[in-house]
């Protein structure tokens, strides 16, 4: 039952421009088991979306290039697959919900057509049957099926995002990547879309990668959490481990910056400084310029993965495997 669905090993993706090299993803490794939902949390530009595009085989090339690593999905390495083989997986077994529903739908095609398109691509059925299936998908995400003949501009933002979700789910994917599915929506619609995604998790048992910078969304829906900083997973663990027993100074900073209802403070604590530009990453630990616990070692040596428990991994010099006492 709980078998590994996806295994990403040491993935490195860089973007090349004429005079610069942007190190977007720098050695990301993680596993995803069936029916599991893992949250990718990190700042804008941390490499979350690029990792997702890597898994889809959709890294824009040029300028993007997968330099290293394996993405094993159902026993096959996605990095090595041909374009034709990738097309069979995309939209069928791995699907993606993009960040901005306003621009993710083609304005000149009806929503029914757009859902039917992906169904027709991966199933041997007639156009008419595909439209019928598209109507069912619309009903599933809470839009009346008869609206399939309408165009995206006739729907509100939240409904468009549901159409995008319907496209992503139309072929019952094994893995759904949701790239900030609620960021572009207002709060009440966010709640609706989130409730829908939770229902998918319990009803359809789809594995998901949930990309977000909202820890509230993570708490709602994820089983495991990866904290991503400057193209690396700095901490990875179960929801409880990350929320109750986080270790990495960056994770600590993230949680400290969440307002507490019981404590009245004039200013929220923030993590000082900015994330380094991906074109100019520091040697050693990527977080050391902003880290309150930084030492000389952090400046020169990039920390390895330290295993706290079977499921809890952290990348920081402050920790040693299987022990959990801070050295300083």
């Amino acid at each position: 039952m709980n078998e590994k669905l996806l295994e990403v090993k040491d993935l490195v993706i860089h973007y090349f421009t004429d005079d610069e090299e942007a190190c977007a993803v720098n050695g990301i490794s993680f596993d995803l088991k069936e029916q599991e939902v893992v949250g990718f949390v990190g700042e804008t530009g941390a490499g979350k979306t690029t990792t997702a595009l890597g898994i889809m085989g959709l890294v824009p090339a040029p300028p993007g290039k997968v330099l290293n690593g394996e993405i094993i999905f159902e026993g096959k390495d996605i990095v090595k697959l041909s374009e034709a083989e990738l097309r069979k997986i995309r939209g069928d077994k791995i699907t993606m919900i993009f960040q901005d529903p306003m621009t993710s739908l083609n304005p000149v095609l009806t929503v029914g057509e757009q859902i039917a398109e992906v169904i027709l691509l991966h199933n041997k059925i007639s156009r008419k049957e595909a439209i019928e299936r598209a109507k069912e998908m619309l009903e599933m995400v809470g839009i009346p099926g008869e609206r399939h003949e309408e165009y995206p501009h006739q729907f509100s933002g939240g409904m468009k995002q549901r159409v995008v979700i319907a496209i992503a789910l139309a072929c019952s994917p094994a893995l759904l990547i949701a790239d900030e599915p609620t960021t572009a929506l207002d709060v009440t619609i966010q709640a609706q879309v989130l409730a829908l995604m939770k229902r998918l998790k319990t009803d359809l048992k789809t594995s998901m990668i949930m990309i977000t910078h909202d820890l509230g969304v993570v708490a709602e829906i994820c089983d495991k959490v990866a904290i991503i900083y400057a193209g690396e997973i700095v901490e990875f663990g179960t929801l409880a481990e990350i929320f109750e027993d986080h270790r990495h100074p960056y994770t600590e900073g993230l949680f400290n910056s969440i307002p507490d209802l019981d404590v009245d403070v004039a200013r929220l604590p923030v993590i000082k400084g900015l994330m380094p530009a991906p074109t100019n990453l520091p040697d050693g630990c990527k977080f050391y310029p902003r880290c309150p616990y930084a030492t000389e070692r952090c400046k020169n040596e990039n920390p390895d993965r330290v295993t706290i428990t079977d499921t809890h991994i952290v990348r920081c010099h402050l920790f040693r495997s299987a022990e959990s006492i801070k050295e300083t």
């Binding site: 959709l58 995309r90 939209g91 993009f98 621009t103 083609n106 992906v118």
Partner: peptide
């Protein structure tokens, strides 16, 4: 973005160009 959506569906590049790009 909708061109990326079309590619993410697994659509062939020629169809992406003619059906999604050219019409728009």
């Amino acid at each position: 973005d909708y061109i990326r959506t079309a590619r993410a569906k697994g659509q062939r590049e020629f169809v992406v160009i003619m059906k999604h790009e050219f019409r728009n």
